[in-house]
Nucleic acid binder design. Structure first.
Lengths: 354, 354
DNA sequence: AGGCTTCCAACAATCGTTTGCAATGACCTC
DNA sequence: GAGGTCATTGCAAACGATTGTTGGAAGCCT
């Protein structure tokens, strides 16, 4: 024997080289196939209890850790899923990602995160790279409304769940907040405070959220018998502070009359704050502002932002579970989840000045 | 032939099954080994130009994409690195992560991100899982000051770079901001505004940043001939808003006299804002506050926070490059990088009231 | 013409698992 | 005691690439 002592022999495997299944088998005096079955809970019952125990012990002694690469190669599964987001730097996404991870963890899965910067080409390259890494499914927080890549994956019946944003095609499961009710919550709140002319700084029309919130805004106004005036809506090209500022400026420049504005999301609301500041307008005395998302730290703004809270973490977790369902059984019926939203009242919305 | 037409044959591979190297080889009429060499830039010169071209064409026609799993199994490399962070939800980390990705991308590497929640056990499990996934190196943004796991990896000469936080052991390369000069920048600014008694809400003493900034605070005061009074320092147990608030409250409760406070980071500064608000103290009129990090949106606070900017994205990118150097050649000498910081003056620091 | 490189491509082993199939032997039944 | 079932284990072929070794053809030299 090359090794002076048994200890050295063990150390060799534990430290220098990582023990393989073959080593474990040899150590336990069985065939690698048997060792594999003994260690795998699903096939464990195929091997004698006593043998299995011996294998388990050998594995422990040698510090055996299965090689997921080899396993993936053989099984073409990886116990991991891809998470495709536009940009982790956008404070919207980290909580979702954590939610996904927390949903995945109990099942022993983990997440591969990639940033697309909303670039279709990059996205397609990344997805293809994820797939060649054998991810078992995909969670996609895509922005665009129509989306050939997604349709394609869905057509292949590749396990896929959309998060945060819906897509026109109904065959793709999605987990989102109930934007319509969220918008209603916000508008009703403003109405109860006494606002009648409520403007909307709308998100990009090529996103499902932008479009959906805009529609909900109109519908709620109608329901409440409030004026729905297209002149009170300014659209944005992106979910950014600058765009929010530009939109509100346009509204103000038109001399449109309104006392409150519902922003398509918190970033846009931040933009609104900026122009209000610039023009010496006080929020909420001169203008009420309501956001959407309840991003981190918007409670620290002056004034603290009244906004609609979306349960991002929960969205991620639900998406993970939904995906896992489909991974385990591809024929699980497609189902989408709508999570309730809540209004968090802070100080950016108040009764209008008389 | 099982396939009615050549087109169907091709579709079979392109759509239904993904073409393997063997398929490409057969299609080009060569041995798989030859195909491998033809497609790999590093071995390309071992095969005849004409043959190589034929292989290339076949690969393209069949839509061949190499299987990274199989490649990893054989080469025990993965063209990916692990990124170990406490919590992606902390706004500090997303820009670093993006920086890392951007630094990795040109070399064809990608990043696996994991969150440890600063739990040593979880961290160790995650690192081990990353290693069994054959990551070629690790970028670690660990919080704790001494760190057996890190020492162990370093001892093994496993490619490893620390970001954002240093560790006592000198053999581990790290990329950080130049905290000492950053603190000096902040204190000098306050001194120039006329502050003499400057307090410090210090980060956790078990983190290198917490400790380092505290030391720099004392040293700078001394340099400037300002009083360095231990009664003007309150330590925190965590980098959180609540801890920042508690610390400043303690200082205030002691009736310590001071007109400005340097917070260990922006989160702590946020906590300071909270207690100032509660007590009806105006910032900056009654108390100046300077933060550290320049987190997103602190320019939107009231007052906009004066703080020290850390080039997070650059830190990530440099770390990636450093790591890649070591991955390519394990014997690259250990080198650490200190990036310059800048003070961004906003409105939370002003001359003290007389 | 024989011997020498040089170039190129094929061969086959290997990475560490999983898994269908076959073999063995124990035990049971009629 | 022949035949059947059942539990258990071994065998070997994959999965899809990489790479050291081998061998044949061509080209060059003396």
């Amino acid at each position: 024997m090359r090794y002076a002592t048994r200890l050295q022999f063990l150390r060799y495997f534990v430290v220098v080289r990582t023990a393989t299944l073959r080593d474990v088998a040899r150590h336990a005096g069985v065939h690698p196939g048997t060792a594999s079955r003994a260690l795998n809970p699903r096939t464990r019952r195929l091997v004698n209890d006593e043998t299995a125990e011996r294998v388990r012990e050998a594995a422990e002694q040698l510090g055996y850790r299965p090689n997921p690469i080899a396993r993936s190669l053989k099984t073409s599964r990886s116990a991991s899923v891809g998470v495709v987001i536009p940009d982790i730097t956008n404070p919207l996404f980290p909580p979702i990602v954590r939610g996904v991870e927390d949903g995945l963890y109990p099942a022993g899965y983990s997440a591969w995160i990639v940033n697309t910067d909303n670039d279709a080409e990059r996205e397609s390259a990344l997805v293809s790279s994820l797939r060649s890494r054998q991810v078992d499914g995909l969670i996609v927080a895509t922005a665009r409304l129509q989306h050939p890549l997604i349709e394609e994956l869905a057509a292949e019946n590749f396990p896929l769940v959309l998060v945060n944003r819906r897509i026109e095609s109904p065959s793709v499961p999605a987990v989102t907040g109930d934007d319509a009710r969220g918008v209603a919550l916000a508008i009703r709140h403003l109405a109860e405070l006494g606002h009648e002319r409520i403007a909307h700084v709308a998100g990009p029309p090529w996103t499902s959220t932008g479009r959906g919130r805009h529609r909900a805004y109109r519908e709620t106004l109608q329901e409440l018998g409030l004026p729905v005036d297209p002149g009170l809506v300014a659209g944005c090209e992106a979910w950014s502070e600058q765009e929010g500022a530009r939109a509100l400026s346009r509204l103000l420049a038109k001399k449109a009359r309104f006392t409150a504005v519902l922003a398509g999301n918190d970033l846009l609301a931040l933009g609104c704050y900026d122009v209000l500041n610039e023009r010496g307008l006080d929020c909420p005395a001169d203008m009420s502002v309501v956001g959407f998302n309840d991003m981190a730290f918007v409670d620290k703004l002056r004034p603290p932002l009244t906004t609609v809270r979306i349960p991002h973490h929960q969205i991620g977790a639900e998406a993970a579970r939904l995906l896992l369902d489909r991974v385990e059984n591809r024929d699980t019926p497609v189902k989408s989840i709508l999570l309730p939203l809540t209004l968090v009242e802070r100080q950016s919305a108040a009764p209008p000045a008389r």
